Amino acid sequence: MEKLRFDFMVKPSADGKSNTICITSIGTPEGKVFEMPQEYQPVNLHQVICNTSNYVKVKKTLIKRHQIRRIWITLTKDISDVYLDEEQNLQFNDFYLEEISEERNNTEPMPSGSNKTLEELLERLLESKQTKSETQNLGKIARDFTIEKFTGRNLNPYQWIKNFNKECERFQIKEDRKKIEILKNFMENSSIDWYSCMIMKFTVESEWEQWERNFCETFANKGWSPIRYAFAFKYQAGSLLDYALKKEKLILEVRKTIDTGTLIDLIAFGLPSYVADKIDRGTLVSTEDLYNNIGQLEHLVGRNKYDKKNTTQYSDTKQKKTEEKKPCSICVKEKKGKRYHSEENCWFKNKNQTSVVKTVNNSELEVELNEENQKN
């Protein structure tokens, strides 16, 4: 024989997370095809083939899972020693290969140009249908994910991508390409631009670890603002339970590994004192116990508003009384000391008016007497 045809195919690895190029069968110029056992199919076991220039081109061509290429390779002494015995029987590692029957393999010896073109067209059509079907299925699966969309600001990227991976495991999405494709359904705002840039730089066929690492490095907030906001978040108004659930979510977003006791303390710390003081801290084992107690104390919120209203009215009355206790300005002016009474009831006010009248009357009388003396 002068050459053999090697059938290459991209298959998923054992863990399903990556792709592996395999040699599935070997064909002869006579049209016979021999199947390669599963354990011998990974191309890294066929070093003499990997060292050929033909395989370098095949490796560049096969980029998607389940793609197939059938390549004729000229036999060298090294290749013949591995795949042919002295009688020209096909073998590999001293293991004779089994010939595939026509029912299992409808292969022609050397396809002509027209047949080869038809084969490529059919292959592309099958790939297109498969890709379209996978995209539709991924869209349906994405709707069943129990995580919210990532906007670039709303969540801790480390925690979010961890939850995303858990959802992928739950729906048995193990291929890197599928993870990258389904990720698009959960991007919003600035994260959409990030996804587009990643597609242009690394393509959908890149490794998921690369995407995961870049995602965390891009959106990680290394400052203290999220920590401060989560820990200092306190009840302002509305439902006590709504506050508690919001506080728990904020804390878990920045510190997933926080212990339950500390989480309960931080939630209770943000409650109003008149509510927190009515909860027995020793009986709280989980956050659910805290929420149960909080639900029973919701009525205190309205009551506290009523108490505040009465307190405000009392404060206003007290302030008015304090304002009334200002010293009388008339007494101060007359240098009678600081006396606290209303100016209307001030005794010196009437006395001052009387003295003014008397002064005026005496002056008039003096003028009249002087005029009479002059006449006389």
Rank of each mutant, 00 (worst) to 15 (best):
D176A: 04
A244K: 08
K234M: 14
M200A: 12
F171Y: 15
N221H: 03
V204E: 12
F231Y: 13
K222L: 07
K179A: 00
L245E: 06
K184L: 03
A230D: 06
I227F: 01
I182Y: 02
L240I: 08
E175M: 12
K201W: 07
I180P: 10
E188K: 04
L252K: 15
G223R: 15
K234S: 15
P226N: 08
W194Y: 11
S191Y: 14
Q172Y: 15
C197A: 12
K201T: 15
M198D: 02
K247D: 00
S191C: 14
N185Y: 06
D242G: 05
M200T: 03
I173M: 07
I173G: 03
Y243H: 01
T203Y: 07
P226L: 11
R228E: 07
L250E: 15
N185I: 07
N221Q: 05
L250P: 15
E253M: 07
I180V: 05
L183G: 00
F215S: 07
D176H: 12
E248N: 12
K247M: 00
S225E: 03
Q236E: 09
K222F: 00
C216W: 04
A230K: 03
K179Y: 12
E175L: 06
N221K: 05
I192K: 04
F231L: 04
E175V: 08
L250K: 06
Y235P: 01
C216K: 08
L240H: 01
K249S: 11
S225F: 02
Q172G: 03
S225C: 11
E207C: 11
A244D: 06
L241E: 05
D176E: 07
M200H: 12
Y243L: 01
E217F: 02
D242I: 04
L252N: 01
M187T: 15
K179F: 14
E212A: 03
E205I: 12
S191G: 03
W194R: 08
K249V: 13
R177K: 14
F231I: 01
C197D: 10
K246N: 06
F186P: 04
N185R: 03
L252E: 08
K247F: 00
T203L: 01
A237T: 09
F219S: 02
K174R: 05
I199Y: 08
F219I: 05
C197F: 04
S191V: 11
V204D: 10
V204S: 15
Y243G: 00
K174T: 13
S196F: 06
A230Q: 04
K201V: 10
E207G: 05
E248I: 15
T203C: 11
G223F: 01
W224V: 14
E205L: 08
R170K: 11
Y195K: 11
I173T: 11
V204I: 13
Y235M: 00
E212G: 01
F231D: 01
I192A: 09
E169A: 07
A232N: 06
A220K: 08
M200V: 14
I227E: 02
R213D: 07
